[in-house]
Amino acid sequence: MTAGADRRFRLAIGTATVLALAAIWGVGSAGQWIAPIYFPPPGEVWTAFVQVAVQGYADGMLHQHFLHSCLLVLYGFVAAVAVGVPLGMLMGWSRRAEAILNPAFLLLRPIPPLAWIPLAIVWLGLGDAAKVLVIWFAAFVPSVINSYAGVRSIEPHLLEAARSLGIPRAMLLREVLFPGALPLVFTGLRLSLQACWTTLVAGELIGAITGLGHLLYQGGLDIYPAMILVGMVAVALAGGLMTALLTLLEARAMPWRGR
């Protein structure tokens, strides 16, 4: 089978599975085999979607919740990456930097990001700043680790070749170290982004005025499973969208990896 035919086959199978699940959902709900209190029928979910999109729910319209969550993730993510990637690369490049920074980092690393929530609230209150801080912690650790590993993964003979060519230090950092580390840096960004969304939802569940986590929380309080489902799908979409953007950026940043 050719690669193209194989891909088409996989796509067909995958679509069939999703359609089958949707059919089970529709038929099961219509036939009352699935209790609506546990899992709402498609019509109810649609009604909930229209309600939150048009009239609003949990103190905001769907797009407000959506945008608010995306912004918080973006702030935390960008701030974490801006600090984490250079720090990780520095640790990968310089033994001295590694000796100084690594012990502190090892101490920080095993703390689950969610464990920072109480402290973040004490420091910054219940507002957005505390959530951004927690998201920052969640994204920081994978950024550092993978940037560090990225620099270390560069084949030693490439560095030797650069030194033999007489490449000055600044050029070596910019044109050998950085692009050499990039594949693993992006792996780190991907993991960071996932961690951001997990943390955001948890943070907003605990206390928020707007945001998708808040929408989920309100849906839980109101025992409104259809709305909870809308919230879950929205979180998945937002996360998927950001990951897709990252993938696009990755292809742009590493044109030499073209398929």
Binding site: E155, H157, E175
Partner: peptide
Amino acid sequence: QFALFPWK
């Protein structure tokens, strides 16, 4: 091992 820079 040639040691060419793959990104160049």
